[in-house]
Design a protein around this nucleic acid. Structure first.
Length: 274
DNA sequence: TCAATTTGACCGAC
DNA sequence: GTCGGTCAAATTGA
């Protein structure tokens, strides 16, 4: 456990706030830019700005990480995924052919949720179940890592939105421990930064509570924001660029990301995608 | 033939 | 008793 002094916390808070302000300013510039007519120069500039925004929040994540993966659980609702499967030492009944139901329901765990128009996230998953969920229009699908036989315990649940069926809500549990977790490398190279800032986002996200849920906009910002921007002038090329920057994050034209606490409020928001 | 998916059953948590 | 997470047999498809 790390113990930061009050002064350390204040200093860290100041740094985070500074970086947040910087990120917001860049995002504002980006928003202004997107309101201008499309041309090559604008696209280049927009890319640069989006990278800056991304960098800002990566910095914030690094700051919040309090200096090491050992502390990552301090940033999330604690708990463990380990109990999800039947452990060998808890065999009250003899091992029989039918071991169905040999599990424990997941309570709290190392989990995070994303919303995306795509089901794919670059990882190899195998579907192992599907359930009709109460009051849900669409069934929930259950996936586990293809490399479970290598001891990888990563799982995820995917469910379509009731109101926005083109969007999928994906909840991840646990992290990939298999080396071959991605079909294609998901590496972001920021040429403006020193070598140490070559980001493999999956790795980064693992450091910060497993969450890649960086609040690009606060809930209040989202609520205040003018949704008509996205409706009237979606920049599909930029959207594609940003999405390709980090397919593991929550990217949507309006909602770049969200945190889980605001999830239900997010679900109630009326946002429209093209 | 084998890997992936589907689907009904099982059972712990609530 | 209900719901949700998982198992595993059956099915499908490459």
């Amino acid at each position: 456990m790390s113990s930061l002094s009050y002064e350390d916390l204040l200093r860290k808070r100041k740094m985070v706030m500074g970086e947040l302000v910087r990120g917001k300013e860049t995002a504002t510039q980006l928003k202004t830019l997107l309101q201008k007519p499309v041309n090559d120069h604008r696209s280049v500039l927009a890319k640069e700005l989006s990278v800056k925004v991304f960098r800002s929040f990566t910095e914030i994540l690094s700051m919040l990480n309090y200096g090491g993966g050992a502390n990552k659980r301090s940033l999330i609702a604690g708990g463990d995924l380990g109990g999800s499967y039947c452990s060998g030492e808890n065999n009250k009944r003899p091992r029989v052919k039918d071991r169905r139901g040999c599990y424990k329901r997941r309570k709290t765990s190392d989990s995070w949720t994303t919303i995306s128009p795509a089901k794919e996230d670059g990882c190899a998953w195998r579907k192992y179940g599907q359930k009709i969920i109460l009051n849900a229009k669409y069934p929930r699908c259950y996936f586990r890592c293809t490399h479970k036989n290598q001891g990888c315990k990563a799982t995820k649940q995917v469910q379509k939105f009731k109101e926005q069926p083109i969007l999928y809500r994906t909840t991840y549990f646990g992290h990939h421990t298999c080396r071959d977790k991605l079909r294609t490398p998901q590496i972001i190279i920021d040429t403006d930064l020193p070598d140490s800032n070559i980001h493999c986002f999956e790795e980064k996200s693992s450091q910060v509570g497993g969450g890649s849920n960086i609040p690009f906009e606060t809930k209040e910002d989202i609520a205040r924001s003018d949704m008509s921007d996205t409706k009237s002038s979606p920049d599909s090329s930029l959207w594609h660029d940003m999405k390709s920057l980090d397919p593991l994050m929550v990217w949507s034209p309006k909602m770049k990301c969200f945190d889980m606490e605001g999830f239900d409020e997010f679900c109630d928001l009326d946002f429209t995608l093209d």
